[in-house]
Amino acid sequence: MRGLCAALIFVTTALAVGLALDAWLQAAEIQSPLETYIDPIYGPSYYPGRSFSRFHESFFLGGTNAWGYLGEGRPERNETDEVRILLVGDSFVLGHTVFERHHFKRVMERELSAALGRRTAVLNFARADFNLWNMHRYYCDFASRWDHDLALLFVGESDLVPSRQVGSALYPFSYASADTVAADYSFRASRQFHQAKRLEPLLSRLAVPRLAFNLYKLGLRGKTAGILFGKLAPARTADAEDGRTRAVAAVEPLSAHSRVILRDLARDRRVLLVYKEPIDDTYRAAIDSLGAHPFDLVPIFTGLRARGVEPRWWPVTRKLGHWNQQTHQDIGRALARVVLDRKLLD
């Protein structure tokens, strides 16, 4: 009986202390609960009104607005006659590495507001692990509901060929069906979806389970041995290090799905495609032939490198990752310039 009582006290204390520590982890922003949930229509989506922090490559403090996207929010209807530009892209555009005031959207807002004489709002609808098929679907289903004057869709080579990506299987996506674009929502029938939904109540409220979830994700990327054994862990290959992109020897042709989606986007006068990384000439030619005239960010990176700045280098953590603050500044200025030069808001 005494043993049982001691066991009960032990378990109760451990749980109480665990919960107290969880609250403290959240208050000190050491770890936030999961800020995303799996929406049955849009896939992984942000909870509205959440604050969270990130420390992976750099220091990020930010949050979502009442409408469930990053940064300062706007309602769907534009009642103030402001210029609205939407950003749709992956983690580079998401900017979980910079404060909102350093994000290129702020530079664009500043420059465009000054040049146009009208208040300009740039709304960030990016999502992690997005590819062309996902972002097209998200643009059609969700982002385009915000009365916008222009939408910028950021793509890289791997986004154009989603078969090469090991992205999130929990997103809906667009595909070509008899020369038109159709939507696939089959993710909500998947085992992964149901597992995620079961864990959601725990992960979205508590920080400690989120830590365990982070560890699980590191395990999936094959980092467990390195965490446990440090220098003594077997060396890992570069492919294993990344773990998110399948290696391919040659350039695959642009799939029929991607072609139809790109053609659909090219027809939309309110859409500008932006290359966020070097693109093979084969793809460039294919995309140009569809009537799209993307804007290329690569010359900006080249310019930064010429000035001795590595666009994705984080000096504090000494990691190569997403765009740093200086790169955001240059991207913001370049995008504002192209919007004005091409008269995309006229």
């Binding site: 451990a14 665990g18 520590l21 969880d22 982890l25 830590l211 560890l215």
Partner: peptide, 25 residues
């Protein structure tokens, strides 16, 4: 504190420490 309480505090704290340590540099 009582041994069961002390053990509870230690185990909970160390579990959180281990999880945090495993997920950051």
């Amino acid at each position: 504190l009582r041994p069961a309480v002390a053990a509870g505090v230690c185990i909970a704290a160390m579990a959180v420490v281990a999880l945090y340590l495993a997920t950051v540099d």
